[in-house]
């Protein structure tokens, strides 16, 4: 078990190097710092001097991989790759275009992101599983058919619609909750309720339908027949035997996204004005702040790999058949 986790952790290193090289290629090779400067400065202000000045200000005035002007190790370290890409392994992300330290921003913004994403995740999981179990319990009846149709309809609606409709009706028309914004501490609750509600509702369609399929697959298996042959009531068969097996794919599928909850949700946070990492990312994309985008790519990849490892571990917890080797 320990050896296995250690091996998975070691495997994460080449993955992160791959991610790093890929972003480096995208951001510095395909798209040179000169291009970035031009884009940032806007067509009107592009002069060679302005470009140079912009590059100096942002620390992009070095060679990409090898600095022949420097001496010794500095030949390798005083380069864009070392300073802007390799440094991320130490979680040193540098500064954004607004001059603020990206690492600090990430730390302060994780809280609000989690405040939205975690409740959406937990409540969503509970609601979807309950809804799926309800449909499965009444399978092949009109309730089930209606539930499936409802799911298809719900999942055919754009996520943006849920947000806009939620804001319009609940916040603007009925004035139940504020449209957007955030507050520190306990006062944040009233800003959290609406985005969480919207997040949960928009996930029901696909989630409940998927879980229903998982449960139905389990219900067709032989051990369910055995459980019925023991004289167990249908509810016990469903909630004990089927749920226990069905939860294996559901839980492990959920665990992989768990670390990514830190990243928040781009759209939700942006619409509701939550000062989390999602809105940070979206602002960076819209402002073409490459330093922040790069940092978020690395962070996202890191968290994803943590998720993969957690998934493996959670498998060995929920499924006795899995032994990690």
């Amino acid at each position: 078990m320990h050896a296995y986790i250690l091996r998975r952790l070691l495997y994460a290193i080449p993955i992160l190097i791959g991610v790093n090289l890929l972003t480096f290629t995208l951001f510095f090779v395909v798209n040179t710092p000169d291009d970035m400067a031009r884009l940032q400065l806007g067509a009107k202000h592009v002069t060679p001097e302005a470009i140079e000045r912009w590059k100096t200000e942002h620390g992009y005035d070095r060679p990409l991989l090898l600095n022949r002007d420097a001496a010794g190790m500095a030949q390798l370290t005083d380069t864009i790759f070392f300073r802007h890409s390799a440094a991320m392994f130490a979680f040193e992300f540098g500064k954004g275009d607004d001059g603020r330290d990206i690492g600090t921003e990430i730390r302060t913004r994780m809280g609000p992101s989690l405040a939205i994403a975690l409740p959406v995740f937990v409540i969503g999981l509970l609601v979807n599983i309950s809804f799926a179990l309800l449909m499965v319990f009444f399978r092949a009846s009109y309730l089930d058919v209606g539930g499936v149709v409802l799911c298809v309809v719900l999942m055919s609606i754009s996520g943006l619609f849920y947000i806009i409709a939620g804001q319009y009706f609940i916040a603007k028309l009925w004035n139940l909750l504020p449209i957007s914004g955030f507050a520190d501490g306990i006062a944040a609750w009233k800003f959290i309720v609406l985005p969480v509600l919207v997040g949960v509702v928009s996930g029901i369609g696909s989630g409940a339908r998927w879980y229903r399929t998982i449960f139905l697959e389990e219900i067709g298996k032989d051990y369910v027949r055995t459980a019925r042959a023991k004289g167990l009531p249908e509810a016990r068969v469903l909630f004990h035997h089927v749920l226990k097996n069905g939860m294996i794919p559901i839980l492990t599928g959920a665990v992989v996204v768990l670390p990514l909850l830190f990243m928040g949700s781009l759209i939700t946070e942006s619409f509701f004005g939550i000062p989390g990492l999602g809105s940070y990312t979206i602002d960076a994309i819209q402002a073409q702040d490459f330093a922040v985008v790069r940092a978020m790519v690395f962070l996202g990849a890191f968290l994803y790999i943590v998720g993969l490892i957690l998934t493996d571990i959670s498998y060995s917890w929920v499924d006795p058949r899995v032994r990690l080797q």
Binding site: L22, V293, I305
Partner: peptide, 14 residues
Amino acid sequence: TVLNSIPGVLLIAA
């Protein structure tokens, strides 16, 4: 795994 680990929106954005 490398491609999957990068958040999709960010890769597309880049």
